[in-house]
Protein backbone atom coordinates (compact mmCIF):
# COMPACT_ATOMS: atom_id res chain seq x y z
CA UNK A 1 0.00 0.00 0.00
CA UNK A 2 1.27 3.45 -0.86
CA UNK A 3 2.22 5.89 1.88
CA UNK A 4 -0.72 8.18 1.09
CA UNK A 5 -3.08 5.20 1.00
CA UNK A 6 -1.89 4.16 4.45
CA UNK A 7 -2.29 7.70 5.83
CA UNK A 8 -5.84 7.81 4.44
CA UNK A 9 -6.62 4.38 5.91
CA UNK A 10 -5.38 5.44 9.34
CA UNK A 11 -7.41 8.65 9.20
CA UNK A 12 -10.65 7.06 8.00
CA UNK A 13 -10.44 4.03 10.29
CA UNK A 14 -9.92 6.00 13.49
CA UNK A 15 -10.32 4.01 16.66
CA UNK A 16 -11.47 0.41 16.28
CA UNK A 17 -11.03 -0.56 19.95
CA UNK A 18 -14.45 -1.19 21.48
CA UNK A 19 -15.50 0.75 24.60
CA UNK A 20 -14.15 -0.88 27.75
CA UNK A 21 -16.68 -3.11 29.55
CA UNK A 22 -17.09 -2.51 33.32
CA UNK A 23 -14.08 -3.55 35.37
CA UNK A 24 -14.39 -7.09 36.79
CA UNK A 25 -13.65 -7.82 40.46
CA UNK A 26 -9.99 -8.71 41.08
CA UNK A 27 -9.26 -12.44 41.20
CA UNK A 28 -9.05 -13.83 44.77
CA UNK A 29 -5.42 -14.30 45.78
CA UNK A 30 -4.16 -11.97 43.08
CA UNK A 31 -0.63 -10.78 43.97
CA UNK A 32 -0.74 -7.04 44.68
CA UNK A 33 2.63 -6.61 42.96
CA UNK A 34 0.98 -7.33 39.58
CA UNK A 35 -1.45 -4.38 39.80
CA UNK A 36 -1.56 -2.39 36.57
CA UNK A 37 1.07 -4.37 34.65
CA UNK A 38 0.94 -8.00 33.59
CA UNK A 39 3.28 -9.61 31.10
CA UNK A 40 1.76 -12.75 29.53
CA UNK A 41 3.62 -15.79 28.21
CA UNK A 42 1.38 -17.98 26.08
CA UNK A 43 2.01 -21.74 26.09
CA UNK A 44 0.21 -23.98 23.61
CA UNK A 45 0.24 -27.30 25.46
CA UNK A 46 -1.55 -29.22 22.71
CA UNK A 47 -4.36 -27.04 21.50
CA UNK A 48 -6.38 -27.37 18.27
CA UNK A 49 -5.48 -23.65 17.62
CA UNK A 50 -9.07 -22.53 18.18
CA UNK A 51 -8.07 -20.86 21.43
CA UNK A 52 -4.98 -19.31 19.76
CA UNK A 53 -7.22 -17.44 17.32
CA UNK A 54 -9.21 -16.07 20.26
CA UNK A 55 -6.06 -15.13 22.23
CA UNK A 56 -4.73 -13.31 19.15
CA UNK A 57 -8.07 -11.48 18.89
CA UNK A 58 -7.94 -10.54 22.58
CA UNK A 59 -4.62 -8.77 21.99
CA UNK A 60 -5.73 -7.33 18.64
CA UNK A 61 -6.99 -3.79 18.09
CA UNK A 62 -10.70 -4.52 18.70
CA UNK A 63 -10.50 -6.03 22.20
CA UNK A 64 -7.08 -4.45 22.94
CA UNK A 65 -6.03 -6.22 26.14
CA UNK A 66 -2.94 -3.97 26.16
CA UNK A 67 -4.98 -1.01 27.33
CA UNK A 68 -5.50 -2.79 30.67
CA UNK A 69 -1.74 -3.25 31.11
CA UNK A 70 -1.49 -6.84 29.78
CA UNK A 71 1.17 -7.52 27.16
CA UNK A 72 2.38 -10.68 25.40
CA UNK A 73 6.10 -11.30 25.88
CA UNK A 74 8.61 -13.65 24.27
CA UNK A 75 10.16 -15.18 27.39
CA UNK A 76 8.77 -16.74 30.59
CA UNK A 77 11.51 -14.85 32.49
CA UNK A 78 9.69 -11.60 31.60
CA UNK A 79 6.25 -12.99 32.34
CA UNK A 80 3.88 -12.71 35.31
CA UNK A 81 1.11 -14.85 33.84
CA UNK A 82 1.53 -18.16 32.02
CA UNK A 83 -1.51 -18.49 29.77
CA UNK A 84 -2.01 -22.16 28.82
CA UNK A 85 -4.30 -23.33 26.01
CA UNK A 86 -5.25 -26.86 25.03
CA UNK A 87 -4.98 -30.26 26.66
CA UNK A 88 -1.51 -31.11 27.97
CA UNK A 89 0.01 -33.72 25.69
CA UNK A 90 2.73 -36.12 26.90
CA UNK A 91 5.35 -34.20 24.93
CA UNK A 92 4.32 -30.82 26.35
CA UNK A 93 3.95 -31.79 30.04
CA UNK A 94 7.63 -31.30 30.87
CA UNK A 95 8.08 -28.09 28.79
CA UNK A 96 4.99 -26.66 30.52
CA UNK A 97 6.40 -27.51 33.97
CA UNK A 98 9.74 -25.92 33.04
CA UNK A 99 8.07 -22.80 31.63
CA UNK A 100 6.18 -22.27 34.87
CA UNK A 101 9.40 -22.88 36.87
CA UNK A 102 11.22 -20.31 34.70
CA UNK A 103 8.63 -17.65 35.53
CA UNK A 104 9.68 -15.46 38.47
CA UNK A 105 7.30 -15.17 41.44
CA UNK A 106 4.76 -13.71 42.04
CA UNK A 107 3.19 -15.50 39.08
CA UNK A 108 -0.19 -16.88 38.03
CA UNK A 109 -1.19 -19.70 35.71
CA UNK A 110 -4.34 -19.09 33.64
CA UNK A 111 -5.92 -22.09 31.88
CA UNK A 112 -7.86 -20.88 28.81
CA UNK A 113 -10.54 -23.00 27.17
CA UNK A 114 -12.42 -26.19 28.05
CA UNK A 115 -9.53 -28.43 26.97
CA UNK A 116 -7.16 -26.73 29.39
CA UNK A 117 -9.77 -26.97 32.18
CA UNK A 118 -10.91 -30.60 31.84
CA UNK A 119 -9.55 -32.03 28.53
CA UNK A 120 -12.80 -31.11 26.69
CA UNK A 121 -13.31 -33.04 23.47
CA UNK A 122 -9.94 -34.76 23.81
CA UNK A 123 -10.56 -36.47 27.17
CA UNK A 124 -9.15 -40.01 27.10
CA UNK A 125 -7.25 -39.59 23.82
CA UNK A 126 -4.01 -41.57 23.65
CA UNK A 127 -1.56 -38.61 23.49
CA UNK A 128 -3.15 -36.68 26.36
CA UNK A 129 -1.39 -36.43 29.73
CA UNK A 130 -4.28 -34.56 31.34
CA UNK A 131 -5.72 -31.11 31.91
CA UNK A 132 -3.49 -28.21 32.93
CA UNK A 133 -4.29 -28.63 36.65
CA UNK A 134 -2.96 -32.21 36.48
CA UNK A 135 0.50 -30.84 35.58
CA UNK A 136 0.86 -27.42 37.26
CA UNK A 137 -1.13 -25.39 39.81
CA UNK A 138 -3.81 -23.30 38.08
CA UNK A 139 -4.92 -19.95 39.58
CA UNK A 140 -7.59 -18.89 37.11
CA UNK A 141 -9.73 -20.65 34.48
CA UNK A 142 -11.57 -19.34 31.43
CA UNK A 143 -14.54 -21.39 30.14
CA UNK A 144 -15.56 -21.87 26.53
CA UNK A 145 -14.71 -23.92 23.46
CA UNK A 146 -13.20 -21.67 22.30
CA UNK A 147 -13.65 -18.89 24.89
CA UNK A 148 -14.65 -15.49 23.54
CA UNK A 149 -11.93 -12.84 23.48
CA UNK A 150 -14.07 -10.86 25.94
CA UNK A 151 -13.75 -13.69 28.47
CA UNK A 152 -9.97 -13.87 28.05
CA UNK A 153 -9.66 -10.10 28.44
CA UNK A 154 -11.90 -10.22 31.52
CA UNK A 155 -9.66 -12.88 33.10
CA UNK A 156 -6.56 -10.79 32.44
CA UNK A 157 -8.30 -7.72 33.87
CA UNK A 158 -9.00 -9.70 37.04
CA UNK A 159 -5.19 -9.94 37.37
CA UNK A 160 -4.24 -6.39 36.39
CA UNK A 161 -7.16 -4.84 38.27
CA UNK A 162 -7.65 -2.18 35.57
Amino acid sequence: MSLIGLVRLIRTTGRVAEPAPPRPDPAPGRPAALAGSVQVRHVDAGSCNGCEVEVAAAFGPVYDAERYGARLVASPRHADVVLVTGVVTHNMAEPLRRTVDATPRPRMVVAVGDCARDCGAFAGAHGVAGAVHDVVDVDLEVRGCPPEPDAIVAALRQVTGR
Binding site: G36, S37, D64, E66, R67, R71, P106
Partner: peptide
Protein backbone atom coordinates in the same frame (compact mmCIF):
# COMPACT_ATOMS: atom_id res chain seq x y z
CA UNK B 1 -1.33 2.32 19.48
CA UNK B 2 -3.60 5.23 18.45
CA UNK B 3 -2.47 4.99 14.82
CA UNK B 4 -3.20 1.26 14.87
CA UNK B 5 -6.74 2.01 16.07
CA UNK B 6 -6.08 0.77 19.62
CA UNK B 7 -6.89 2.58 22.84
CA UNK B 8 -3.35 2.16 24.20
CA UNK B 9 -2.11 1.44 27.72
CA UNK B 10 -1.39 5.08 28.59
CA UNK B 11 1.91 6.93 28.81
CA UNK B 12 2.53 5.78 32.40
CA UNK B 13 2.63 2.06 31.47
CA UNK B 14 6.47 1.81 31.28
CA UNK B 15 6.62 3.19 34.84
CA UNK B 16 4.07 0.59 36.02
CA UNK B 17 6.13 -2.13 34.31
CA UNK B 18 9.31 -0.94 36.04
CA UNK B 19 7.65 -0.79 39.46
CA UNK B 20 6.32 -4.31 39.02
CA UNK B 21 9.67 -5.70 37.83
CA UNK B 22 11.41 -4.26 40.89
CA UNK B 23 8.89 -6.10 43.10
CA UNK B 24 9.52 -9.45 41.42
CA UNK B 25 11.88 -12.30 42.16
Amino acid sequence: ARMEGRAGAGVLQPWRDLRKLLGKE
